[in-house]
């Protein structure tokens, strides 16, 4: 029974994946991709990876979906691209890609039942940080450098996206302007939901220490709230030249880096936390990251400044 549920889920995911790449219209394939993401979320739950499930739903399906849907909408009238491989070539590529998939499948079936060295080690080392959520321990302590670099990747992507602004629009507010909508269900929703969203984000950050959740998942919810408010025309993003906005964006990475380097003095190694205050320090860093990541994610979806005239 359970196995069939999983098999059905897996087949559904593959069917949606096929639809996402084989459909001609970008809009349709994006919709298929979003649903694929939701199916995958359930798959992650089945695999016992609740933190990943939250991230997949929020980022893999949600934010990526929003980004791609917006782009599909804007590029809809773009002329079709011509560099399409010929049918025999596509068949050749299909066979080769199927070969890759089959090879990877064989690897999956051959996976050994390895000794869970890392899982045991991670559980026994968790006391040093005071966090009970093993995934968060890995992200914030054991592999902190990965997390820092990942935040810098987000930051670099934002710098890159902003750098794509037309010269005339540089320094102005990012993205297109959504005119203030007439009072309606959307504006009501955009007024009611954000306070709840902020509470949920804070909750995810707080429980993330000991249960699935964490700064990143919370940040995604905050980012969604920002985007909702913008979509309803209730508020606009500050101009990219705003010093406050820029400080907000670098606050998280800078705090993490600063604490990491302070670890040399306080705990004897870079990115080490003094044992007595590890949990408190991690929560402070996570809070800074929550704010920065939320702003960065939302701004990445909004895009570069493109309004040549200052907003009225």
């Amino acid at each position: 029974m359970t196995a069939w549920f999983d098999v059905g889920l897996a087949l559904m995911a593959l069917g949606l994946a096929w639809r996402a790449i084989a459909t001609r219209r970008a809009f349709d394939s994006t919709v298929a991709f979003v649903i694929y993401g939701l199916v995958l979320t359930i798959a992650w739950v089945r695999l016992g990876a609740y933190d990943v499930a939250l991230t997949e739903a929020a980022v893999g399906s949600g934010l990526t979906g929003a980004l791609l849907l917006g782009a599909a909408h804007r590029l809809e009238r773009a002329p079709a691209d011509e560099d399409r491989p010929s049918a025999p070539l596509r068949a050749l590529l299909a066979v080769a890609c199927a070969g890759v998939a089959l090879g990877l499948g064989a690897v999956v079936l051959a996976l050994p039942q390895v000794e869970p060295l890392q899982a045991v080690a991670a559980a026994s080392a968790a006391e040093a940080t005071g966090l009970l959520n093993p995934v968060n321990n890995v992200l914030m302590a054991f592999r902190a450098i990965d997390t820092v670099l990942e935040k810098m990747v987000l930051f670099a992507a934002l710098v890159g996206v902003w750098s794509l602004a037309p010269d005339a629009a540089w320094g102005r507010r990012p993205g297109r302007r959504f005119p203030p909508a007439a009072e309606g269900p959307l504006t009501l929703f955009a007024r009611v939901l954000p306070p709840v969203g902020v509470l949920i984000a804070a909750h995810l950050l707080w429980v993330g220490a000991d249960a699935p959740g964490g700064a990143f998942q919370g940040a995604t919810i905050l980012a969604a709230m920002i985007l909702l408010v913008r979509l309803a025309g209730l508020a606009d993003a500050p101009p990219v030249s705003s010093r406050a906005l820029r400080l907000l964006i670098v606050l998280g990475p800078a705090a993490f880096l600063g604490v990491g380097m302070a670890g040399v003095v306080l705990a004897g190694a870079p990115f080490a936390y003094p044992a007595a205050h590890a949990k408190a320090i991690i929560l402070v860093v996570e809070f800074a990251m929550l704010v920065s990541v939320a702003a960065t994610l939302a701004l990445l979806v909004v895009g570069p400044p493109e309004r040549a005239q200052a907003a009225p």
Binding site: A22, T23, R24, R25, F27, D28, V31, A72, H73, E76, R77
Partner: peptide, 14 residues
């Protein structure tokens, strides 16, 4: 037929 964007005819499947 996705509403917000719609009205472009569907091409044949690839």
């Amino acid at each position: 037929e996705p509403a917000a964007s719609g009205r472009r005819d569907r091409g044949p499947r690839p």
